[in-house]
């Protein structure tokens, strides 16, 4: 053997000594026996994924940060001093009043703490999802085997103690030993999340149609904005909880920010879809009143928001943009308006 490192020789083995108790998915151990070449590739992928990530993080200016911190400090100390004075005053007035006030403050602190904990948890889950999705995207481009073990563990951790856990475990159990990494991601995306996808889709459709109809029927134009905003926030919460993200105010806020950001900088494909839906809308609204047209617009906007939220909350990348949803939303709104016409 002149070049012993170049390839691995065939080996005969004793069938009785084999370890077949774990026939499927021995991912991490397989990864180690790949030739050096492959290993380096996987690392490359990880690096590029990280590199993609880095610029996304925003860097605030020093002055801005200082302003934020000082503002926070002033507010916190102000509120703290006021609270202390309140307590002091109530106790000097009457011990019972003091007890009552301190009880109220305790309750406030408790509920605030729970809220805070929830929103921190939600944010953590959201960033976890982001990480899983980035990994999954990298794996989709990767043709080799054995890189998916970490992803599976992350997914299982994300769905631990949720109703979806059983389904995920079942799907992972059914994974075939012959699948490569990208096939594993596609399989999971198809089979483990199909239920959640369907629910999220129904949810988005419902909210989109509702907000469209509400806007079309609302008598005050100034209410429209509020209505759409309210329905959208509710929808974001619901979509997030469908995909196993604890819904909280901060999650809602972060999601809304990202969704609007994505919508504002939508890619060409989405522009095309929007153009399509706009054309569709115009042909439909030609027969409707201007207010109905506004309703349709609001409904479509809500549907797009919902789709973006779904994409952000889904732990695995969404393969294709669901065009039919937008169409069915438009149809739903027009149908509902048609039904409600005689009532007007």
């Amino acid at each position: 053997m002149s070049e012993p490192d170049k390839f691995r020789k065939p080996v005969w083995l004793d069938p009785k000594q084999l370890d077949t108790s774990r026939p499927v998915m021995p991912p991490e151990s397989q990864a180690r026996e790949f030739p050096l070449q492959q290993v380096r590739e996987a690392l490359d992928d990880g690096e590029t994924a990280d590199a993609d990530h880095a610029p996304a993080r925003k860097r605030r200016g020093g002055w801005r940060r200082l302003f934020g911190i000082s503002l926070g400090a002033v507010l916190v100390s102000g509120v703290g001093i006021e609270l202390y004075r309140l307590l002091d005053w109530s106790f000097t007035t009457h011990p019972l009043l003091g007890g009552g006030v301190s009880l109220m403050l305790l309750l406030l602190a408790l509920s605030g703490g729970v809220q805070l904990w929830r929103s921190v948890k939600g944010l953590r889950q959201l960033s976890q999802i982001e990480r899983i999705e980035a990994d999954a995207r990298a794996l989709l481009q990767h043709q080799g085997q054995g890189g998916a073990g970490a992803l599976l563990r992350e997914l299982q951790r994300h769905y631990r103690d949720t109703p979806e856990q059983q389904r995920l475990d079942e799907t992972i159990r059914l994974l075939d030993s012959a699948y490569n990494d990208s096939e594993i991601v596609r399989y999971l995306s198809h089979h483990a999340l199909s239920d959640q996808d369907a629910r999220a889709r129904r949810c988005v459709q419902r909210y989109a149609v509702e907000s469209g109809v509400l806007v079309a029927l609302s008598p005050w134009a100034s209410f429209d904005m509020l209505l759409v905003g309210w329905r959208n926030l509710r929808m974001l919460r619901e979509v997030a909880s469908i995909y196993g993200v604890a819904p909280g105010a901060s999650v809602q806020w972060v999601l809304l920010k990202r969704v609007l950001h994505n919508l504002a900088f939508a890619g060409f494909s989405e522009m095309a879809i929007d153009a399509g839906s706009a054309a569709l809308g115009s042909s439909l609204t030609a027969t409707l009143s201007a207010r109905a047209g506004q309703g349709l617009g609001a409904g479509l906007f809500t549907a797009r928001t919902g789709l973006q939220a779904q994409r952000l909350c889904r732990p695995l990348p969404l393969e294709q943009v669901d065009q039919s949803l937008i169409k069915s939303v438009a149809k739903g709104i027009v149908e509902r308006l048609g039904q409600s016409k005689p009532a007007e």
Partner: peptide
């Protein structure tokens, strides 16, 4: 698909 221990490392093999 099966696994075997050869020279201290895990080797995936066929049965």
């Amino acid at each position: 698909a099966a696994e075997a221990q050869v020279d201290g490392q895990t080797l995936s093999c066929l049965r």
